[in-house]
């Protein structure tokens, strides 16, 4: 029993990251109507700037800031491509473009970071925060979940209480109508891409030491992130948050069961499949009638 609890708690760090990446995916989808497959790759780019600077002997916290700035810039660059050339494209076209950009980012990232070459990733927040039922809960777990909750609350407040948030909601609904009213559509879109880039980068910096920190592995964290976003039906920040954390816990539990631990990376795919089937149940029912 204690082993199971230990495994579940161990999954919290990953869960917090999935939740934050998922909430960022929902934020991007709701405001600029893009299912963004590059989310984790953007954060990975920033994370590897931190690694490069740290390995070159720079102090850690200035390197963290430089990494976040690089993640933000990468997000803005991807956003610029999407708004400049694909602003009026369909949702499926936009999603396909982000898949192409993901492949491009991974290719360039692997080339620049030496592929599978091991890196010295600094642990930003080592140690234990507290004990829960006899199990150590790491500071990294508390931080990633805290960051995900903070981003969720801030997103809600920002969208519902500020003029920029109101303009973003209008932009998400009818981009051209918003632009015709003088809303600075391109600037606001880039703001969304930059904000999600910054938060994603920081989350990946926290989780990277616990994963094999190569460009491909971190970039593909977009899969559980989109699974979490799907649990929130790409609308609800809070359901996405809960979905991401639950996904991490389930993955943690699976790792402690020998017969399923080797398949635990398939869990997000099963969740995606289950949610899609569940969402189609009414159509199936109607068809059957």
């Amino acid at each position: 029993m204690n082993a199971l609890l230990t495994s579940a708690v161990a999954g919290l760090t990953a869960g917090g990251t999935y939740a934050l990446l998922g909430v960022c995916a929902v934020f991007t989808y709701r405001l600029v109507a893009v299912v963004n497959f590059t989310g984790a790759a953007i954060g990975t780019a920033g994370t590897f700037v931190l690694i490069a600077l740290f390995e070159a002997g720079f102090p850690i916290w200035p390197s963290v800031l430089a990494g976040i700035a690089a993640g933000t810039a990468t997000g803005v660059a991807v956003g610029y491509v999407m708004t400049r050339w694909f602003g009026e494209a369909s949702a499926s076209t936009k999603a396909a473009v982000t898949v192409a950009l993901l492949v491009g980012l991974i290719a360039v990232g692997l080339r620049l970071t030496g592929g599978q070459h091991p890196h010295n990733m600094p642990e930003l927040f080592p140690g234990s925060a507290f004990r829960l039922a006899g199990v150590e809960v790491t500071i990294a777990s508390v931080l990633t979940i805290g960051l995900a909750v903070l981003f969720t609350i801030l997103s809600d407040l920002f969208l519902n209480r500020t003029k920029i948030g109101l303009n973003l909601r209008a932009l998400a609904d009818r981009p051209m109508a918003a632009e015709l009213l003088g809303v600075r559509v391109q600037l606001l879109s880039l703001l969304v891409w930059g904000m999600t880039g910054a938060f994603t980068t920081f989350a990946l910096m926290i989780i990277a030491p616990q994963r094999s920190p190569n460009f491909m592995t971190l970039s593909l964290l977009v899969v559980p992130a989109l699974a979490a976003a799907l649990i929130g039906v790409f609308r609800s920040f809070w359901w996405t948050l809960a979905g991401g954390i639950a996904l991490g816990i389930v993955e943690g539990l699976a790792s402690s069961i020998d017969s399923v631990s080797q398949y635990r990376s398939a869990i997000p795919f099963l969740v995606v499949l289950a949610v899609l089937l569940w969402s189609q149940r009414e159509a199936r029912w109607d068809e059957a009638r």
Partner: peptide, 26 residues
Amino acid sequence: PGARSREGLAHVEQGRTVFRQLTTEE
């Protein structure tokens, strides 16, 4: 289009392009 709006040109498109999820006041 945004710059033209700021220069004083307003366009009411056909099809009643309200922001559907926002209230009248919003």
